[in-house]
Amino acid sequence: MKDVPVNNILLFRSCLVSVEYPGIEASTKFVFDKLGIDYAISEKQTCCTGLGHYSDVFNQIDTSAIGARNFKIACELGRPNLVMMCATCYAINKKSVKLLNKKEDLRNHINQLFDDNGLFHLKYEKDDLKPTENIFHVVDVLYANKNEIKNHIKYDLSDYKIATHHGCHYCKVHYEDTIGGVRDPNIMDELVECCGCKTIGWYDHKRATCGTGFRQRYSNPDLSFTATADKMNAIDDEDVDILVHLCPNCHIQFDRYQHLISKMEGKNFKAIHLNIAQFIALAMGGDFDKVIGVKAHTVPIDSIIEELKEVSK
């Protein structure tokens, strides 16, 4: 397993997390605090360009330049270990670091852009950050601390039938850096087990996309939602109560559109959708509103909340 930092972490904020599911960020902070993870957030950090990049609004040079700026901010703060709450931020930033370190012409071009705009202190040097030593997803940090997670569990969620969805941009972009396998991804399954639960493990369409494809949700909705329906039918066949994932874009596709897919398929899909940080925070006793952020969800998770409230009385 690769070395994963527990110190000098810059928790990289995600546009989709902040706008759609702020409970993911609150849950991540809650769990990190419980585990004693040293992290900070910077107001200077900007978007990774994810949605724009994958919709061809931002080209690779623009994306790498924005990445280089964020990387220098992290270095200046003495927090060179960037940890992402979003799989797309993870994939894009890791690629940008690889390109900046490997391609001298790109690095020089971007540094010249900084100079031309009076940003002399932002000059990116080769190996300021390294893709395998400084760029991580939250699940990497959680997995490195999985034995400690067990010591903070308050609620028993083992009666729920749980499945995981690992997301393309974590498992299918940087294969060599993915913990827990790519052909049968299981890093989140193991994290769920640390909370005293079992997942259903492998299921039909476990490795399949959520269907978003960024632009596909809007430009080819029939194709997009057909792929999502495949996934939802697969977990419905297994009687899944909770689908756990690690990407806010996947979260949007499943949670915001489950009612639409239900109508399209002529059945009532019942799965509840939680980010892995939310799931662990829930098991640790995080406040339903202030930490988990349940009011931001389209598919209600009232069934879990009511049962846990009864247990906590």
Results as ranks from 00 to 15, higher is better:
residue 276 I to K: 00
residue 101 N to G: 14
residue 273 H to L: 08
residue 90 Y to M: 08
residue 180 G to L: 03
residue 303 S to R: 15
residue 183 R to S: 09
residue 85 M to D: 08
residue 265 E to Q: 09
residue 39 Y to N: 03
residue 160 Y to L: 03
residue 310 E to D: 07
residue 194 C to R: 10
residue 111 N to R: 04
residue 184 D to N: 13
residue 38 D to N: 12
residue 12 F to E: 01
residue 13 R to Y: 01
residue 205 H to D: 04
residue 254 F to I: 05
residue 289 D to W: 00
residue 252 I to T: 05
residue 52 G to R: 13
residue 144 A to D: 10
residue 50 G to S: 14
residue 36 G to D: 12
residue 274 L to P: 01
residue 24 I to Y: 06
residue 127 D to G: 01
residue 311 V to Y: 06
residue 241 D to M: 05
residue 53 H to Y: 14
residue 103 K to S: 03
residue 72 K to R: 12
residue 290 K to D: 15
residue 168 C to P: 07
residue 29 K to E: 15
residue 120 F to G: 01
residue 115 D to I: 08
residue 277 A to C: 13
residue 257 Y to C: 05
residue 304 I to Q: 06
residue 93 N to S: 11
residue 197 C to I: 02
residue 14 S to R: 00
residue 97 V to C: 06
residue 24 I to F: 08
residue 53 H to N: 08
residue 166 H to Q: 11
residue 276 I to P: 02
residue 313 K to S: 10
residue 35 L to G: 02
residue 196 G to T: 09
residue 108 N to S: 12
residue 296 A to C: 06
residue 207 R to S: 10
residue 232 M to R: 10
residue 34 K to L: 14
residue 241 D to Y: 10
residue 310 E to A: 08
residue 9 I to W: 12
residue 122 L to D: 11
residue 190 E to D: 14
residue 96 S to L: 03
residue 53 H to A: 03
residue 47 C to A: 11
residue 195 C to T: 14
residue 119 L to G: 11
residue 312 S to T: 04
residue 43 E to L: 11
residue 128 D to V: 07
residue 218 Y to W: 13
residue 232 M to N: 02
residue 151 N to W: 00
residue 63 T to A: 06
residue 72 K to P: 01
residue 194 C to G: 01
residue 245 H to N: 15
residue 168 C to H: 03
residue 74 A to G: 13
residue 300 P to R: 10
residue 72 K to F: 05
residue 295 K to T: 05
residue 232 M to D: 01
residue 252 I to Y: 02
residue 124 Y to V: 02
residue 182 V to W: 07
residue 46 T to W: 04
residue 116 D to E: 15
residue 267 K to A: 01
residue 31 V to F: 13
residue 192 V to C: 12
residue 24 I to N: 05
residue 28 T to S: 15
residue 6 V to M: 04
residue 200 I to G: 06
residue 273 H to D: 02
residue 166 H to F: 13
residue 260 L to E: 12
residue 301 I to V: 14
residue 254 F to C: 10
residue 102 K to V: 01
residue 2 K to Q: 12
residue 105 D to N: 13
residue 83 V to C: 10
residue 107 R to Q: 03
residue 152 H to T: 06
residue 55 S to G: 11
residue 99 L to P: 00
residue 9 I to T: 12
residue 108 N to K: 14
residue 1 M to V: 09
residue 193 E to K: 15
residue 287 D to A: 07
residue 172 K to A: 11
residue 152 H to W: 03
residue 32 F to E: 07
residue 117 N to C: 05
residue 269 F to L: 06
residue 45 Q to H: 03
residue 110 I to W: 09
residue 32 F to W: 08
residue 122 L to G: 02
residue 165 H to C: 08
residue 271 A to W: 07
residue 99 L to T: 12
residue 228 T to A: 15
residue 113 L to I: 13
residue 151 N to E: 14
residue 292 I to G: 06
residue 105 D to L: 06
residue 141 V to E: 11
residue 196 G to R: 04
residue 141 V to F: 04
residue 188 M to D: 10
residue 165 H to S: 09
residue 215 R to K: 07
residue 64 S to C: 11
residue 205 H to M: 08
residue 182 V to T: 15
residue 33 D to R: 11
residue 255 D to F: 09
residue 141 V to D: 06
residue 112 Q to I: 00
residue 204 D to P: 00
residue 228 T to H: 03
residue 277 A to M: 07
residue 305 I to R: 04
residue 283 A to T: 06
residue 192 V to I: 15
residue 277 A to H: 03
residue 203 Y to N: 01
residue 25 E to F: 13
residue 226 T to F: 13
